[in-house]
């Protein structure tokens, strides 16, 4: 059963990813991107990590996909839709292949293949304890970064002379 779900999710993710790039109608592309992100959440559930899956849905489908679709709907100009063929396309294909080969070589040289699942899956409480204890400093830096971007967004959105 998990194998079947995995295959189904993989097919869904790859098809929707290809469709997101190739679709003539940009809105359909954005929607299939949202479905692709949703199928990623399915992978996390298969990996016994419902906590990560829920956040994948909340952040990527609930926020990122909505923003993308919103932007795409507002910017419906034909000139964005044309696919530039020629030099750029060739560079894109070669670059993509290079990145793929590099990742493949990296994978072969790591110990990823020998990792064996060790019984119990980690609960969110354990994740939280590790985050606070071992990675406390990194968490604080992340919080500062978020606060800075929030303040920056507020500054950008401020309208002078209001009230």
């Amino acid at each position: 059963m998990p194998e079947l779900a995995f295959v189904a999710l993989t097919v869904l993710a790859v098809t929707t990813a290809i469709f997101a790039l190739e679709s003539k109608e940009v809105v359909y592309g954005a929607i299939s991107l949202a479905i692709m992100l949703l199928s990623m959440a399915g992978f996390f559930i298969l990996l016994d990590a419902p906590f990560v899956a829920m956040f994948q849905v909340i952040v990527y489908v609930g926020a990122v996909a909505v923003l993308i679709i919103f932007t795409v709907m507002l910017v419906r100009e034909e000139k964005w839709l044309k696919v530039e063929s020629g030099m750029l396309q060739r560079i894109g294909v070669i670059g993509g292949l290079a990145v793929g080969v590099a990742f493949g070589l990296l994978m072969l040289n790591t110990t990823l293949g020998s990792v064996i699942a060790s019984g119990e899956a980690a609960s969110y409480a354990q994740i939280g304890i590790v985050m606070i204890n071992d990675y406390g400093a990194a968490l604080e830096v992340l919080a500062l970064l978020l606060a800075a971007s929030l303040i920056g967004a507020l500054m950008l959105a401020r309208v002078d002379g209001e009230e």
Partner: peptide, 9 residues
């Protein structure tokens, strides 16, 4: 929140 997040979409 994961389910309610689909609402705006």
């Amino acid at each position: 929140f994961a389910v309610a997040g689909f609402g705006p979409l």
